[in-house]
C-alpha cells in the first residue's frame, strides 16, 4: 500500500485541465457552505454558542453544525481563555483534524489574554501556538457577532484565502518552539506533523529547525499499552 501514488500540492499546481479551476471553485463553494464545528468550550464564550445554534439564530441555515469529534470537524472554536493545561489538549485536538481545517478564536482572551493577561497559568496569544484564521473579539461576543464572524470565514473559504492550516506545516518550527517554551522540552504529540508535511507536499524551508531537531531527539515512539486483566 505504501507505493500508491499520493497527490500532493505540487501535482495540483501543475494541472493543465481548464475545467479543473471550475471544479476547485465548486469544491470551495461546498466547503464554505458545510462547516462542522468542534466547539472547544474553554471559557465563558461557550455560553453564546447554544443560542447561536438553536432556534433564535439557527446557524444550520448557513450549513454550520456542531460535531463532537475532531476527525469529523472543520472548524475548531476556541471559546475563551486558554490555560496552559487546556492548550495541550487544544493542540492535540487540532492536529487530529483533517485539513482543510480552520481555527476561530472567540473572546478577547484568545486575542491577547483579555482579563487574564496577568495570569501565570494562561496562554495569552492563541496565534503563537496554532494558526488562527479568524478572531471574534468581544467579552463575550453576542450570537450576532458569532454568526457574522462565521459568514466572514465562509467568504474567506470561498475565495480561497483561509489557508492557514498550511502555515502550520510550513512554519512548524515556529509553532513548536512556542509550544516547547510553554510545555517544556519534552513536549510531543502523537501526530507526526513532519511526516504529514512531507506526505502532502507542504514541507517548506521553515518546517524544520532547531526546535524540531530537539523534538526528534526526545521523541518517544508510540507503543500500545499491554493488555492485562486485573
Amino acid at each position: 500500500m505504501k507505493e500508491l501514488p499520493v497527490r500532493t500540492e505540487g501535482a495540483f499546481a501543475k494541472r493543465t485541465n481548464p475545467l479543473a479551476h471550475v471544479f476547485d471553485e465548486f469544491v470551495r463553494f461546498c466547503r464554505s457552505h458545510s462547516l462542522f464545528m468542534l466547539h472547544y468550550c474553554t471559557g465563558c464564550g461557550a455560553i453564546e454558542l447554544p443560542p447561536a445554534m438553536t432556534s433564535r439564530f439557527d446557524m444550520e441555515r448557513l450549513g454550520i453544525q456542531p460535531m463532537v469529534t475532531p476527525r469529523q470537524a472543520d472548524i475548531l472554536l476556541v471559546t475563551g481563555y486558554v490555560s496552559v493545561k487546556t492548550l495541550k489538549r487544544i493542540i492535540l485536538t487540532y492536529e487530529q483534524m483533517p485539513a482543510p481545517k480552520y481555527v476561530i478564536g472567540i473572546c478577547s482572551c484568545t486575542v491577547n489574554g483579555g482579563m487574564y493577561w496577568q495570569s501565570y497559568a494562561t496562554a495569552k496569544v492563541l496565534a503563537d501556538y496554532l494558526p488562527v484564521d479568524l478572531y471574534i473579539a468581544g467579552c463575550m461576543p453576542r450570537p450576532e457577532a458569532v454568526v457574522s464572524g462565521m459568514r466572514k470565514l465562509m467568504g474567506l473559504i470561498k475565495t480561497g484565502k483561509a489557508e492557514s492550516w498550511k502555515d502550520y506545516y510550513r512554519r512548524y518550527d515556529h509553532y513548536l518552539g512556542n509550544q516547547q517554551a510553554l510545555f517544556g522540552e519534552r513536549w510531543q504529540t502523537p501526530t507526526d506533523v513532519l511526516g504529514e508535511a512531507q506526505q502532502y507536499g507542504l514541507h517548506g524551508p521553515e518546517t524544520e529547525g532547531e526546535h524540531t531537531a530537539l523534538l526528534q531527539q526526545v521523541q518517544q515512539p508510540l507503543i500500545p499499552h499491554r493488555m492485562r486483566l486485573k
Partner: peptide, 23 residues
C-alpha cells in the same frame, strides 16, 4: 428553526470527499 438550505446534503458529501488530508 429555518433549517438547512436545499443542497445541504450535497455540500456535505462534496466537502467530505474534497478533504485534503485523509486519515
Amino acid at each position: 428553526r429555518v433549517g438547512p438550505p436545499f443542497f445541504q446534503p450535497l455540500y456535505d458529501v462534496v466537502k467530505f470527499f474534497g478533504k485534503q488530508t485523509q486519515i
